[in-house]
């Protein structure tokens, strides 16, 4: 097995850093979610949830912790979704053709793009 997938990954990273918007969104969006829905709404929820009794045996966590887990999952989901869409653009612009015409095995493309998606999220 060669290391060609690292090249695909390298290209993904160049594009990631080069598109400031994408990088910015990836870093700021989760923080925004947490701030807006987490901090702003937690005080409201706090007054509502106080009326429910805590179920015995269930660990009591505060709303922000609950929110953070959700935001993390959502960020991972969306970045991966957009990461995969990059493949679609490649196909459209034709770079896919160059990759397929090379002696590189095609699973390197999947691996490289996949790795790129993982890093971005």
């Amino acid at each position: 097995m060669g290391k060609e997938f690292l090249t695909i990954y390298w290209r993904e990273m160049i594009r990631f850093v080069r598109f400031r918007g994408q990088l910015f969104a990836a870093l700021v969006q989760p923080a925004l979610w947490l701030l807006l829905f987490g901090v702003a709404m937690s005080s409201n929820f706090a007054s509502d949830t106080i009326v429910f009794p805590t179920i015995p045996g269930v660990v009591d966590i505060d709303y922000l912790t609950f929110m953070a887990a959700g935001v993390m999952a959502m960020t991972a989901l969306f970045t991966c979704l957009f990461g995969g869409m990059g493949l679609l653009f490649d196909k459209n612009w034709g770079i896919m053709k160059e990759m397929l015409a090379s002696p590189m095995r095609s699973y390197h493309i999947q691996l490289g793009v996949g790795l790129g998606g993982v890093t971005k999220s």
């Binding site: 060669g2 695909i8 160049i14 598109f19 612009w93 034709g94 160059e98 090379s102 590189m104």
Partner: peptide, 20 residues
């Protein structure tokens, strides 16, 4: 068939790398 967002050198570098 060019990646619009890569530079000239990167285009060649990319090609050379995927050809090992």
């Amino acid at each position: 068939v060019l990646d619009r967002d890569l530079t000239v050198r990167e285009t060649l570098e990319f090609h050379g790398r995927i050809y090992s």
